[in-house]
Simulated assay, not measured.
Amino acid sequence: MSYTGPGFDPPPPPQSRRRLTVALAALVPGALLGWAVYAAVGGSGDDEGAAGAPSSAPASSRAPSPSSGSGSPSAGPEDEKPGASATAASPSASAPAASGPLKGKVVVIDPGHNPGNFRHTTEINRQVDIGTNRKECDTTGTSTNDGYTEAEFTLDVAHRMRTLLEKQGATVRLTQDADRPFGPCVDERARIGNRAKADAVVSIHADGSGTGNRGFHVILPGAVNAGAADTRPIVGSSRELGERIAGTFVRVTGSAPSNYVGGGTGLVTREDLGGLNLSTVPKVFVECGNMRDSKDAALLTSGAWRQKAAQGISGGIVSFLRE
């Protein structure tokens, strides 16, 4: 997701909320440790030049992914992540939950975009109501310079998360599993979590920012009350979910919080994303890294690192739900 559109809300001051103060106090040392590890294995990336256009490398040159979907989508900046199509489809549900600490809890994982979106540009460009205004149904997402797509990445991480969370006893649903031609649209993605009465919803993404911009960030819903959108009841719980995910992501992956948004906290608040605006249950987006930076791309295309990303995000969800 590239950020050429609306600006960001600055992170709230630490004294505004005791919980946030405690969370960030725990996050900052972890972030510094994560950055030390990150720099040791990959460097800061500050010596990189400008990003080039995505390559149309054949699928055989891409990192392996368990998801279906072939071809290279038209890359380009994306300012919104979820997507829905006009074709209704049931969300992919997990097998019956095992016993475990999360038994009885419902987690919805929202893998950003869809491998088939690039074949349906007319459908994904149609406008949908996100409460504050109207926006495109979805986008194709971004990709690495050698063609590994965001849609492939998000499905891979979602599958890994589903396995981890089911072992904890959670019932897990995916908003899409490459089981539909395109989408779903951003408004429908939000409704899937709402209808499931999910205890937590996490939308998985990877950014498409400039070279040298590195690290992860978690996008939190701002307080929106317009049209069909009213996030006020879920702002606090979503922030707690996001803080816990950010903390575990740093520790498990060794990646640092974003060096280009969030002021080093790994947390960003937005009010322009339909997937958050229309949610009535705790929900955040996780931008796992920047696909257009070669050093971040090396991590995102690594199966071993994607497993760590899945563990980091899942660990934050478990921590949030067990409180």
Rank of each mutant, 00 (worst) to 15 (best):
G183N: 12
V106F: 10
F320M: 08
K105S: 03
R19F: 08
V41Q: 14
D46T: 14
V268E: 01
D230S: 10
T253S: 09
S255R: 10
P82T: 14
H217Y: 11
F118T: 05
A36V: 11
A226C: 09
V268H: 00
S319Q: 15
Y3S: 12
P12A: 14
G69C: 03
D187I: 12
G210Y: 07
P29A: 07
V107E: 00
H113D: 12
R322L: 11
G227D: 01
P257F: 01
S314W: 03
W305S: 02
A297L: 13
Y3H: 14
R195Y: 06
S56N: 15
N125Y: 00
R180W: 01
I124P: 03
M291R: 13
G104N: 12
S2I: 07
C288I: 00
N259K: 14
A86E: 08
G34A: 15
A31K: 06
P10S: 14
D46L: 14
P184N: 04
G254S: 07
L27K: 00
I219D: 05
E188R: 15
N213K: 14
D129L: 08
F320H: 13
R195V: 10
V268T: 11
L33V: 11
R214Y: 01
A93D: 03
D177R: 05
R17F: 04
A228H: 07
R239L: 12
I313L: 13
D110H: 04
E166V: 08
Q307I: 08
R189C: 12
G236K: 02
C288Y: 04
V172F: 03
F182D: 09
G30H: 01
D110P: 03
E188F: 08
G52A: 10
A206S: 15
V157T: 05
